[in-house]
């Protein structure tokens, strides 16, 4: 083999790049987060759990467009229960804890949705109300 001085370091770099996920994780598969079920004990949502898990972002995006762009604020009825369209109006009514519900999975999957650029979490809402009344 010729030019060992450059070929071998080059191949070592290649192997390190290929192995980088293995080296980064250090053979420890972290635990998969479990989002907290609603603290109020609600068992029902606008869609079945599996569909919510896979498609909630699309549903929220549709709601956002319908409400803000088309002014369609009609309520959603699922299994006889009425829901208002909205993250704060519907979702956060039951799933009150953003950190334990939304963030647990989003952080694991490294997803940073921009919902919270505008929306407030129930905790933030409470704090904001307190400030105003004082």
């Amino acid at each position: 083999m010729y030019n060992k001085g450059t070929i071998i370091p080059g191949l070592i770099i290649f192997v390190l790049i290929v192995m980088s996920p293995v080296l980064y994780n250090g053979l420890k598969a972290g635990s998969v987060p479990k989002p907290e079920p609603p603290p109020g004990g609600e068992k029902q949502c606008v869609l079945p759990v599996s569909e919510m898990r896979d498609k909630h972002m699309q549903l929220l995006n549709e709601w956002r467009d319908e409400v803000l762009r088309d002014d369609e604020r009609v309520t959603v009825v699922a299994d006889g229960k009425q829901y208002r369209k909205g993250l704060q109006l519907a979702c956060m009514q039951c799933h009150t804890n953003k950190e334990k519900f939304c963030d647990s999975c989003h952080e694991y999957a490294s997803v940073k949705p921009y919902c919270w650029d505008c929306h407030l979490t129930p905790a933030q809402q409470k704090a904001a109300l307190k400030k105003e009344t004082h």
């Binding site: 998969v32 599996s50 569909e51 898990r53 896979d54 498609k55 999975c105 694991y108 999957a109």
Partner: peptide
Amino acid sequence: LRTDVDILAIKR
């Protein structure tokens, strides 16, 4: 085609 595409299961 997001049906059964659970990102947590995939990352796991």
